[in-house]
Amino acid sequence: MTAASKSQAPIVLKVGGEVVNGPYLGAIAADVAALAREGTPVVIVHGGGPQATALQKQLGQTPNIVGGRRVTDQATLDVMKMTLAGKVNVDLCAALLAAGAKPVGLHGASSAVIRAVKRPARVVSGGGPDPVDFGFVGDVIGLRKELLDLLLGAGYVPVLACLGADEQGQVFNINADTVANQAAIALGARSLFLVTDVPAVLRDVNDPSSRIPRLSIAEGERAIAEGVVTKGMIPKLEESFAAISAGVRAVHIVGRLASGDLAREANEPGSIGTVLTS
């Protein structure tokens, strides 16, 4: 175990399924490998929504999305296992391996590294007035920190598929942003990176040059209230603010990365994407 890995708080990197399929994966993998070589521990959490939807359609299933959230019956859960713990996790680990990192693919049932319980039925925005039962969708109640610490201390990069499990071995589908937030909180992360298909928080979604380098919680809430931030970026900011309030020091929203961008943003917050702070 290096002195750096003993002393440095880790970086948690959340990667969406669209990023794993996209043209920037090689640059991201190279930067993760470089950070790990320098002694910066990195934990990766990934989703796989686009891949899951594509497989459901191939199998003749119709994805059931309510309020932007996937209802997960048994057939859908099987698809999530195949895509998240299967193809997406393997493809991501393979890219990291090719870049010189030492990835270890994990999912919620890997020694219950992501402990979860079934999410109770609840009313959700966009889902109508009645509570919605999302099926095998879970809420994170803890992470097996000692396993992650063991891997990080030995220089490995844990790669977590966003599946949880309870003590009886029941597996649950979980939103990857939620898992990443909880991982960052549990590990006392120095930074949480949300890698998306947009370069940052933008004042004008059609103009990449309108990037907002830094946002405090108060400034972010004002941007939402004034309509500067819209659509899918709103829940991303709201969950990020909750993570910061729970102890995560900074959340970086980045995307469309070239080689070196991830490391630069880690060392110079706000230089590439948008950094959110308290």
Rank of each mutant, 00 (worst) to 15 (best):
K102P: 00
P199V: 06
A101H: 01
R144M: 03
L106T: 04
A180P: 05
P50A: 15
V137C: 09
V195K: 02
G227N: 13
D197H: 04
G260F: 09
I174R: 00
A95L: 09
G128Y: 13
I28Q: 02
N206V: 10
A75I: 10
A189M: 02
N267D: 15
D261M: 04
S245T: 15
G26I: 01
L77M: 14
L276F: 09
A242F: 08
V117K: 01
T277P: 00
R203Q: 15
D207N: 15
A200F: 05
A161V: 07
K87L: 12
D177N: 12
D261W: 04
K236E: 09
I212W: 03
I234P: 06
R249M: 10
P10I: 06
S7A: 14
P213V: 08
F241T: 07
V45Y: 00
G153W: 06
K236W: 07
D91I: 00
G67T: 12
I141G: 05
S125Y: 08
P63V: 09
G49T: 09
Q168Y: 13
C93A: 15
L187G: 02
A29L: 06
R115H: 14
R37E: 14
M233V: 11
L55E: 09
R119E: 11
A246G: 10
G39N: 10
I272W: 01
V20H: 02
T83K: 04
P50Y: 11
F134E: 00
A109G: 08
I217F: 04
D207E: 15
A176Y: 01
P208V: 15
A186V: 05
V66D: 11
D177R: 08
G47P: 04
A250C: 08
T83W: 05
D130C: 07
V198P: 00
V248G: 03
A116L: 01
D78K: 10
A242C: 13
A121Q: 07
K57L: 11
V79I: 15
I141D: 04
V201I: 13
L55P: 11
D133Y: 08
A242D: 15
E18V: 07
L150S: 15
V43A: 06
I217N: 06
K14I: 09
D177V: 08
I114W: 05
F193Y: 11
G108H: 02
I253G: 00
Q8I: 06
P50G: 13
C93F: 05
S271V: 10
A94L: 12
A27N: 13
L151M: 14
I185T: 03
T76R: 03
A9P: 07
D261C: 01
L257E: 00
A263I: 14
A99L: 11
Q170K: 10
